[in-house]
């Protein structure tokens, strides 16, 4: 079995007020080379699910049940050393607020080259050349000059391109994009989304796109999963979920979205 398969994942988080059942049985499947959009409001458990896939659950979290299979191997059972190898080379991630996800004191090119050297053991000079090539592949003009700049000299959209270059530096099989366009300008959002689709398709990898933006998910993902209150309430092909939602929560989500976009238009998705 290849791709990502999450089976009945149950996670509890210990807080001062007592244990909180943060994930109550999450089931997800992402076949190789496909895009899955994971939508839901904040606090529904989307990002915690992503943390589980990265093997980066918070210290206070305990896994009560379930498996997270990446190409057949259970991430929840991986040792620290295995996890370090898996992260970056098999599964990688980009996050929101891209400028902040880059180290402010290190040149952007060096930050990309660093990953190439860590995961592929490439010599310093070749890694630096590859980093510039990667920046160019992400559509960044003057990549040679840009590689020598620091993150604060990048705009949000450019920083997300650089972050994507970092994430794809070691050709992971799965990219987790956690709210990758949140906080960017509307036009830039579309560009970044298009770039992700283009680059990931070219690499033949799959994507877990975490977003509260239903439209974004619908635009780029073959399949959508809807999370609510720590559980996946519905998942399936995008068109089916959007046009014929079976779960009442999904329906209300679609309604609120359509209403927010255009309050006068009748809700045709029903």
């Amino acid at each position: 079995m290849s791709g990502l398969l999450i089976e009945d994942l149950r996670v509890t988080i210990g807080t001062a007020a007592g244990p909180v059942h943060a994930l109550r049985g999450v089931d997800l499947a992402i076949p190789p080379g496909t895009f899955l959009g994971l939508v839901g409001e904040s606090g529904s458990g989307k990002s915690l699910t992503a943390s589980a896939v990265l093997g980066m659950l918070p210290e206070a979290a305990t896994v009560d049940a379930g498996r997270v299979l990446l190409d057949g191997a259970d991430i929840l059972k991986a040792s620290r050393r295995e996890l370090r190898r898996i992260r970056g080379s098999q599964v990688a991630a980009i996050f929101q607020n891209p400028v902040a996800t880059l180290n402010p004191l290190i040149r952007v090119g060096d930050q990309i080259a660093e990953l190439i050297r860590i995961h592929r053991g490439a010599p310093r000079r070749r890694a630096a050349v590859e980093a510039v090539d990667l920046l160019a592949a992400m559509g960044i003009a003057e990549p040679r000059r840009r590689a020598r700049q620091y993150p604060h000299q990048y705009s949000g959209g450019m920083a997300q391109r650089a972050a994507l270059a970092r994430a794809l530096a070691c050709s992971p099989r799965l990219l987790i994009a956690d709210e990758p366009t949140t906080g960017l300008d509307a036009t830039v959002q579309a560009e970044v989304l298009a770039l992700i689709v283009d680059r990931v398709r070219a690499a033949g990898a799959s994507v877990l796109l975490i977003t509260h933006d239903l439209a974004a998910a619908a635009q780029v993902c073959e399949r959508v999963a809807v999370m609510h209150d720590g559980a996946v309430v519905e998942q399936g092909p995008t068109a089916q979920v959007l046009t014929a939602p079976r779960d009442p929560y999904t329906r209300s989500l679609i309604d609120s979205y359509v209403l927010a976009v255009d309050g006068d238009t009748p809700v045709e998705a029903r």
Binding site: L54, A100, I118, H119
Partner: peptide, 16 residues
């Protein structure tokens, strides 16, 4: 901070 988290998510060794 986000860049440390991102670094971890990309498999940079903890000591580094």
């Amino acid at each position: 901070s986000p860049y440390i988290r991102a670094g971890r998510a990309l498999g940079i060794p903890p000591a580094r």
